[in-house]
Nucleic acid binder design. Structure first.
Length: 233
DNA sequence: CACCAGGCAAGTA
DNA sequence: TACTTGCATGGT
């Protein structure tokens, strides 16, 4: 286990490709040893995963859980049910997840799309090739790159790497990327350096979130026992 | 009290 | 194109 002493390697020093690959694999390995298998995404069905992906935008997962509990209790947790329910009632049900008016519109937009374009069959929609599916998801209001990729990886179970705020912060603090690296830069890095494997990407992203929560928060980093070497901030 | 959480879209210059 | 702002609850 490494501590969190500042790295002597300047962020600007370019690393060779093989070194980047080793560092990424070591990040995964050390995190997995620390946390064990995480079995993501927490959700009982592909649709619940899609809903969770939208509700968790810039929001703590504990709040999303409360919202999903409400959706289940009110029987809104289906494409048809959510498409038909009044938007105000939907917004009220998801209140704990924050941004509830915006997110009610987003959930409606998602269900509207599945209903119109795929006759309500989420399974059909998710069975499409990755590029087609990603393009469709991004065309839906409220679905950006991370939400689209979370749905592709965790609901459709197809191999794309999900980049989130923790991914950006951890790779930056590892000295691998710029602080403001673009989404596709980070994603391309994983795609180029690691095997294109759904189960591996699934577990890797989950491990990144756990490392981020425990050891790489914006402020108050708990650096003792951190499974990887990060630059202090 | 201030700050943050598994983003995104719309507005401005 | 490149910033900025609104959205909002609940935990630390």
């Amino acid at each position: 286990m490494y501590g969190c002493r500042p790295s002597r390697t300047p962020a600007t020093l370019p690393l060779c490709a093989a070194s980047v690959t080793r560092r990424l694999r070591r990040l995964y390995q050390r995190a997995f040893e620390h946390f064990g298998p995480l079995h993501w995404w927490p959700g009982d069905s592909p649709f619940e995963v899609c809903v969770g992906a939208i509700l968790t935008q810039n929001t703590a997962w504990t709040n999303v859980e409360k919202a999903i509990t409400n959706l289940k209790a009110r029987r809104f947790l289906s494409v048809r049910g959510m498409h038909l329910v009044d938007e105000v009632l939907l917004a009220n049900a998801i209140r704990p997840s924050g941004y509830y008016n915006q997110k009610a519109k987003k959930l409606k937009a998602f269900c509207e799309y599945v209903t119109r374009r795929h006759q309500g069959s989420l399974r059909v929609m998710l069975s499409q090739p990755i590029d087609t599916l990603r393009e469709e998801l991004l065309s839906i209001n409220g679905v950006g790159p991370e939400t689209a990729d979370s749905i592709i990886l965790y609901a459709a179970q197809q191999p794309v790497f999900v980049v989130d705020a923790y991914t950006r912060r951890i790779l930056y603090r590892m000295g691998l990327t710029a602080e403001d690296a673009a989404y596709h830069e980070l994603q391309d890095l994983f795609h180029a350096r690691l095997p294109r494997d759904t189960a591996y990407y699934n577990e890797f992203h989950a491990q990144i979130v756990y490392v981020g929560k425990e050891f790489c928060r914006k402020s108050k980093p708990r650096c003792d026992r951190c499974p990887v070497r990060l630059r202090s901030r």
